[in-house]
Computed example of a mutant assay.
Amino acid sequence: MNASAWPPPRLGAPGLVLRRWSEGDAAILLDAVTESHEHLRTWMPWAQDAPSLEGQRAFLRSSVDAWDRGAEFVYGVFDPEETAVLGCVGLHRRAGPECLEIGYWVHAAHTRRGLASTAAALMTDVAFALPGIDRTEIHCDQANAASAAVPRSLGYRLDRVQPRAAVLPAETGRDMVWVMSRDAHGDSEARRRALAARGR
């Protein structure tokens, strides 16, 4: 794979920094996951166990390896000084070679500030700069109104609601699949939001 097959390792936006995880982020990631545990465990299967430093180190090792292989690209969302984790956002190859799925979570103390929408807009922009990507998707359970508000606000189209095994008590087992095509992206709110975040 050539260099164009990887996204930039770092992105800046007003009030936050997105950069690829490093193994040195374990301590501040543990702080964020611990402080947000009750918030995250409602919707995140990986957040069901008590957070641990070794668990965060294992996640970061996996993230670094996946990035290096081009399998997926996961960013930490940091404050401008990069001393605190505000959330996480990533591009995942789950739906075929021409599609990247965007996933995200936000620290409990930083919800309702538009962080997820800004991060997802930037990821949408980054995804379509990669070769061979024609579609991005965002998936969330039908009951997760806060998560669904993100693709809706960015101009994603609700493509379908499909059955999925409910793993957590809050889930309905009906997965909303929101889609953005390359053609639609150029005139979308996601594109406008990404350009504004980058000061363009």
Rank of each mutant, 00 (worst) to 15 (best):
R135A: 02
R157F: 09
G96R: 00
A149S: 15
V161G: 05
G103S: 10
I133Q: 11
D183Q: 15
R192L: 08
R164A: 09
L154Q: 09
V126N: 05
A184K: 11
P80G: 04
Y104V: 03
V150Y: 13
M176I: 00
L195G: 02
Q142H: 14
H107Y: 11
G155I: 02
R93S: 13
A165H: 14
A120R: 11
L100K: 06
G173R: 02
H110L: 03
T136C: 12
H92A: 01
L86K: 06
A148I: 07
P131F: 03
V126K: 07
H107F: 12
A84D: 13
G87T: 03
I138F: 03
T136L: 02
G103A: 10
D134F: 00
R193I: 00
L115D: 10
V177K: 06
H92Q: 08
M123T: 03
Y104N: 11
R182T: 01
R94E: 15
D183C: 01
A166D: 11
C88N: 15
D125Q: 01
V177G: 12
V106R: 09
L100V: 06
A148T: 10
E189M: 08
E98N: 13
D183Y: 00
H139K: 09
A120F: 12
L115P: 13
H139A: 06
T118R: 14
R152V: 10
R93G: 11
D125F: 02
R93L: 12
N144L: 06
G96M: 02
M176T: 01
R193C: 13
R174W: 15
T83N: 08
Q162G: 00
T118N: 12
H107V: 03
D141V: 01
D125P: 01
D187A: 12
D134C: 06
E189L: 05
G155T: 09
L158G: 13
D141F: 05
I133E: 10
F128S: 08
C99W: 00
E82N: 00
R93H: 14
C99D: 14
L100H: 10
G186T: 05
C88G: 12
G155Q: 08
R112C: 03
A119V: 01
L168F: 02
H107N: 14
T124K: 01
C140F: 12
T118W: 06
R94S: 10
Q162L: 13
I138H: 06
G103N: 03
G186F: 10
R112Q: 15
I102W: 12
G132Q: 11
P131N: 05
L168V: 00
A121V: 04
R192I: 01
R93M: 07
L154T: 04
W105H: 08
T136E: 04
E189K: 05
